Deep mutational scan, measured.
Amino acid sequence: DHWHVHIDGERIRLDGASEEFIRTLEELIRRGTDARELKEIIKEYLR
């Protein structure tokens, strides 16, 4: 599956992301997590 998110107007691909990770991201977004912080979390995950 190819997922991607838009954060700060930037399109970030989440290739190979699990549904669990996507749900976690959605939860963080709902909580109002800062965009820079979200991008860091995604970069760490994709390593």
Rank of each mutant, 00 (worst) to 15 (best):
L28P: 00
R23P: 00
L38Y: 01
E10V: 06
G32H: 05
E26Q: 11
I12Y: 06
H6T: 13
S18V: 06
T24D: 09
D8T: 04
L28W: 04
R47L: 09
I41V: 10
W3Y: 14
R47G: 15
D34N: 13
K43S: 11
R11F: 15
E44I: 05
E26S: 08
S18H: 12
E20K: 08
A17Q: 04
R47P: 14
E27R: 06
D15Y: 08
G16N: 13
E40K: 11
A35R: 06
L25Q: 00
H2A: 12
L46N: 07
I12E: 01
R11A: 05
E44R: 09
R47Q: 15
R13I: 15
I7G: 01
L14W: 02
E44T: 03
I22F: 08
K39F: 11
G9H: 06
W3C: 05
H2M: 06
E44F: 03
R11V: 15
I7T: 01
K39Q: 09
A17W: 05
L46Y: 14
H2N: 15
I42A: 01
I12Q: 02
S18E: 08
D34Q: 10
G9C: 04
K39C: 02
I42Y: 03
D34K: 11
G16S: 10
R11H: 15
I29N: 02
I42Q: 00
T24V: 13
Y45K: 10
L46P: 07
R36M: 13
R47S: 15
R31F: 10
Y45S: 11
F21P: 00
T33Y: 02
G32Y: 03
D1H: 11
L14H: 01
I12K: 01
L25W: 03
I7V: 10
K39I: 09
R23Q: 12
K43N: 14
E37G: 06
Y45H: 14
E20Y: 05
L38D: 00
H6F: 04
R30D: 08
L46K: 04
K43R: 12
R31I: 12
H6C: 08
D15Q: 11
E10M: 06
T33W: 01
I42R: 00
H2G: 05
R31D: 08
R31A: 12
I7F: 03
E27M: 07
I22P: 00
E26V: 09
S18F: 05
I12V: 11
E26F: 05
G9N: 10
R11D: 15
E19K: 11
L14Q: 00
V5Q: 03
A17S: 06
F21R: 00
E40M: 10
A17E: 03
D15H: 10
L25M: 07
E19M: 14
R36V: 13
E40F: 07
G32Q: 05
E26G: 07
E10L: 06
E40Q: 12
K39Y: 11
G9L: 02
E20C: 03
E19D: 10
R31E: 11
G16V: 07
L14C: 01
R11W: 15
L28E: 05
D34Y: 01
R36L: 12
G16P: 04
R47W: 06
E37L: 14
T33I: 14
E37C: 06
E44S: 05
R47D: 06
T33L: 09
L14T: 02
R36G: 13
D34W: 01
